[in-house]
Design a binder for these strands. Structure first.
Length: 470
DNA sequence: TTTTGAGTTGTTCGA
DNA sequence: GTCGAACAACTCAAA
């Protein structure tokens, strides 16, 4: 058994508990060398998630120090950096937790092959999902394209245990030099927004775990009823933490299962949402093109517009449609958006504004601190109609009707829209402090007139659907 | 192989 | 105000 250091390459698993890779590493009793790399793939993320990643890395570094370890930070192509570390430290193995987005898979496949060719151990672990995407199969041995059968297949399937956090990591004889996180300037693209969005972040593993506990002790009971109402704080908000792996999905699953067995109403609905996260990765693995091209090829003829002036107003939360603008402003101010609002802004962009879903996806990738490649690829294509789901052609959300149903008292809209209010909410005002000055927005200004008449926009979208193969 | 039942989240219209 | 039907036809998954 080797006593040489083992490099633990952390990526989106910035936690100590529910860490199969870390638990197995501690078992070896070898010196452990945790590293985080700013490689080109990691650097290629949007402004807000990249900034938020920096907070996660900093918190994780502090957590490791509590175990007598350090997080070594390095920049550069992953393979080059890892090889350099191997040379510097005498390590003979590199371990990591698998990711499933195409860019990470391509990188990791190359790294694994190259390290092995060099005689090093390169080993990847499960941990990002409940089940690896290839472990769930239909009766015919294929993959699922429909959620309900997928859910039935995993709902009662056993999930691997979530290992406890280690108490101490064996240090190497000498720690390698680490770069300074501040030098990475991960928040550089955030400009004015960072100070505002920072107020809404819940960073790090202990905070994520507290959030899970608070949710399961309270709001989960009414989750099924209120999760669709953006003005009611009834969701877990864990997507932010799951994205960076600040909490493990298996730990969340087991905790929710316990609440289900205790008879907590709403627990089943919550588990189902975890099922959707799982399903999105299932799809991304089996049809990686979902991230960039229409999942249903017959949508290639849909006359979507590329980026345009209406889309620009959509990004600015200035469409003149209050529910839509509230959602977009919520995202700009808090880094997340309520799921109901995501559907509405997505439908509005792709249907009423006839703009390609990729334009919306790109904006979400820039603004969401809970940005997830699988969930967003699936979600955008679902709402656009080009994704996996039956009968989508008539799915044109009416933002006014949705407001009536899901924000009847206007609490959500008031929270994020300042114009026309004598006493605007703090968050509504903070939007104007966060946006670039070049947008020229003013909370005292008039609320804009609608970009498009709702009935006209709907009719145009339905006509476009009919014409998509013409 | 064929058949069958079902498919996250909607809207509108007319009774 | 509420309710059911129509909005098309297709694909998926399992029997």
């Amino acid at each position: 058994m080797s006593d040489r250091p083992l490099i633990l390459w952390f990526r989106r698993d910035l936690r100590l508990g529910d860490q199969p890779m870390l638990a197995a590493a501690v078992e070896t009793r070898r010196p452990l060398l945790p590293v985080f790399l700013l490689d080109p793939e990691t650097a290629a993320t949007g402004a807000a998630p990249k900034w938020r990643l920096g907070l996660a890395v900093a918190a994780f570094g502090r957590a490791l120090e509590g175990l007598g370890a350090r997080l070594t930070l390095r920049r550069g192509p992953a393979l080059d950096v890892l090889r350099g570390l191997v040379t510097e430290t005498g390590a003979d193995a590199v371990w990591w937790t698998r990711l499933h987005d195409p860019a990470s898979v391509a990188r990791d496949t190359g790294v694994k092959a190259a390290l092995k060719a060099q005689g090093l151990e390169a080993r990847s672990f499960a941990g990002h999902l409940l089940h690896e995407p290839w472990e769930v199969e239909t009766g015919q041995g294929g993959f699922y394209r429909v959620f309900t059968p997928f859910w039935r297949a995993i709902r009662d399937r056993g999930v691997a245990d979530a290992p406890q956090a280690p108490v101490r990591l064996r240090p190497p004889d000498r720690w390698p030099v680490s770069e300074d996180l501040a030098d990475w300037r991960l928040g550089a693209a955030m400009q004015l927004g960072a100070a505002v969005v920072a107020r809404h972040q819940t960073v790090g593993e202990p905070a994520a775990r507290a959030r899970l506990r608070a949710f399961l002790d309270g709001p989960v009971a009414r989750y099924a009823e209120v999760r669709d109402f953006p003005g009611v704080p009834g969701t877990s908000r864990l997507s932010e933490n799951l994205t960076y792996g600040e909490i493990g999905i298996r730990e969340v699953w087991h905790a929710a299962m316990r609440r289900r067995s205790e008879g907590a109403p709403g627990a089943e609905s919550f588990l189902r949402e975890l099922g959707w996260r799982e399903f999105s990765y299932h799809l991304l693995h089996h049809t990686p093109q979902i991230a960039s091209a229409n999942w249903k090829a017959d949508w290639d003829g849909f006359p979507w517009r590329d980026d345009n002036r209406d889309a620009e107003r959509w990004r600015q939360g200035m469409t003149g449609e209050p529910f839509v603008d509230a959602g977009l402003r919520e995202m700009y101010v808090t880094g997340t958006m309520h799921n109901r609002a995501r559907m509405i802004v997505g439908s509005y962009l792709t249907k009423h504004l006839l703009t390609h879903w990729r334009v919306g996806l790109d904006w979400f990738a820039d603004c969401l601190t809970d940005w997830d490649p699988a969930a967003n690829a699936m979600g955008w294509q679902w709402v656009a109609g080009s994704g996996p789901d039956a009968a989508p052609y008539f799915r044109v959300f009416n933002p006014a009707g949705q407001a009536e149903r899901f924000d009847a008292d206007g609490a959500y809209r008031r929270r994020f829209i300042a114009e026309g209010s004598r006493q605007p909410a703090a968050e509504a005002l903070s939007f104007f402090a966060a946006v670039p000055r070049s947008w020229g927005l003013d909370p005292a200004g008039p609320y804009p007139a609608p970009v498009v008449d709702l009935a006209e926009g709907r009719a145009r979208a339905l006509a476009a659907y009919g014409a998509r193969n013409a």
